[in-house]
Design a protein around this nucleic acid. Sequence first.
DNA 1: CGTGTACTTGAGGGAGTTCAAAAATTGTGG
DNA 2: CCACAATTTTTGAACTCCCTCAAGTACACG
Lengths: 232, 232
Amino acid sequence: MDTEARAAVLKRSAFFHGLNAAIVDKIAAAALERLLKPNETLFQQGDPSTHHYIVAWGRLRLDQTTPDGKNIVLRFMGPGDLVGSVAVFRSIPYPATPTAVEETRVFQWTSDRMNELMSEYPVLAAKAMAMMGGRIGELQERLQQISTQQVERRIAAAILRIVAQSGRKTDVGVEIPFPLSRQDLAEMTGTTLHTVSRTLSAWIDEGVLEGKRSSHLVVLKPHRLMQIAEQA
Amino acid sequence: MDTEARAAVLKRSAFFHGLNAAIVDKIAAAALERLLKPNETLFQQGDPSTHHYIVAWGRLRLDQTTPDGKNIVLRFMGPGDLVGSVAVFRSIPYPATPTAVEETRVFQWTSDRMNELMSEYPVLAAKAMAMMGGRIGELQERLQQISTQQVERRIAAAILRIVAQSGRKTDVGVEIPFPLSRQDLAEMTGTTLHTVSRTLSAWIDEGVLEGKRSSHLVVLKPHRLMQIAEQA
DNA sequence: CGTGTACTTGAGGGAGTTCAAAAATTGTGG
DNA sequence: CCACAATTTTTGAACTCCCTCAAGTACACG
């Protein structure tokens, strides 16, 4: 990818959106790139945090492994999302592992380089705070859901969250444009793949969803899912 | 409280720690104060976010109410903690309600005033990011715990977290220096007060804890609690 | 003291996990 | 292109942790 193409991607990201075009060009020129194949990891949980990344295209799944070997999915990251920055700002090792779920291209900057950029363009600090604030809001929402809601509602909410972040409208409904396994959904909602499987089967029977293994999930009746997610 | 006393408090807070003394004095002079009696709220969830606050002394419980009337405790805030800032930075209504659990004094600054301070002293932006990063880390930890661990471990972890943030060593153990009900613990760990009550009763029998209603909880055997929290 | 609030304790039930196995789908190598 | 292996998904059955429901108890505060 050349600098111009990179700049075009960055201009669309929330982080750099609205910056003067010349500045974005300069930032784009300072970036290095990396291309990940499916199941490749960008870095490992526990590695020293050295770089900021932005997803150009593709999709990453952010996993956290517990000391006793269990796994949770913190979130999926798509084009424009910042990866690794929170750890770099805190000067702590990366707390999770980003894995490509499809071919994915990312841009990267060293911590020092990004610090220079941020002191040169203070608006970037505000953008970073907005990003972190959004992350906090999302985590609080999930904590509330998992604390108070039944499994079915949590699964519905998880699917709707992904749809809101990455959904693509088709003629029959909304498609989740990357592979999403029952295991992934289980690790996003704090349940087991068995329960997810049973729940999705019921929804497929009901005509709310469609999509089998390795074909992308399609939500046929988003309204019905919202109803399930919000039922008192 | 006079400006000098306020400045002394601010210098001890993580947010202003390390700043030039003259600057902190100026910031302290710009603050207004508010004194809350037990059960008074600083603001209400849903109110427009207009001010940043810092706890001078006392203790706040940060509650979030769900649309269907359930309640969760996001965290307790003590001296030096920033309250409300995340919402102000995001320009969204306060997402939760801080309630005093004991007599509490806070300082406050308007959003505009804080923006001036932050552009005048850019290091404050870095401090704010560190604070938000810490909040993200704490939320991710809790999400992981509630997703993968049994209730007993979560309750132990919640108590240990409070002990780490606010514990006071005494001759017999570590005291939690503010009233903490079973209901509070239940709303922190995503369980019911019944289960918390049973669990604490068992621990009191075992000699791990002590403290009845409205007297402060004392952890007699922190090591034992850590063992429970970390058991595979 | 009396009333309200917090806490304790018991019994029963149910949502969801765990264990187990089969079925479906994808990938692979001849 | 087909057979076989690997992986994901489905489904069944039993169990269990924890919630729900229901009283009763103890403590604090007016």
